[in-house]
Design a protein around this nucleic acid. Sequence first.
DNA 1: TAGACAGGCAAGCAGTCACTTGCCTATAGT
DNA 2: ACTATAGGCAAGTGACTGCTTGCCTGTCTA
Lengths: 100, 100
Amino acid sequence: MKIVTDDLFKALADPTRRAILDELTEQSEQTLFEICTRLSVRHDVSMSRQAVSQHLAVLEAAGLVRTRREGRYKLHGLDTSPLRRIVERWPIPHIPEDHS
Amino acid sequence: MKIVTDDLFKALADPTRRAILDELTEQSEQTLFEICTRLSVRHDVSMSRQAVSQHLAVLEAAGLVRTRREGRYKLHGLDTSPLRRIVERWPIPHIPEDHS
DNA sequence: TAGACAGGCAAGCAGTCACTTGCCTATAGT
DNA sequence: ACTATAGGCAAGTGACTGCTTGCCTGTCTA
């Protein structure tokens, strides 16, 4: 493995990839075609299948997407744990919660 | 203001800008020249002054850096609160802490 | 076994980005 | 007033990136 740090932020830099993460957040374990159709229907993103495939590869390199083979299907799942590095690197000030 | 979401992730995509955030985390309220010298000395990043200035502009557009004028100096401070949007958007699974 | 279906590889193109260079403005000190 | 200092603006360039297109591999079903 390389320096995943760079891959992580590069992966997050694209709006389409963030939409994919949104989609996988709502329903995990989707195939490439499912993600394609859901992107076009719900996020109004019209793009070729290969484009989405390349985005998924970038997300996988960043560790944000884990895949597993199931026959001829390839299921894509979400893994948000790499995001923890961000808030650990630059601590976010705590907001006093409003318990009114 | 526009959609700051895009600016935020674009700002984080560059390693030099992340180094700047690291520097401001350690010591806030620095001028452009201070950031330049600290980058070259501590992060081994040799770059023109204008390059760093442009990076700071990107960080400011993302809301990660707040500036204030002080005579002929412009002091740059850190604001990590925009990062909260990230972990709110894609919740990070809680790690059971080890109290052994 | 033939065809449909899910996915992958690689080349090419256009737009974006990071960085430099040159010049300009404004404040501070002598 | 002159000069040094801190910073800003704008054009140009090389590299990277996102997307397309065309073709290929592997799996399932009639």
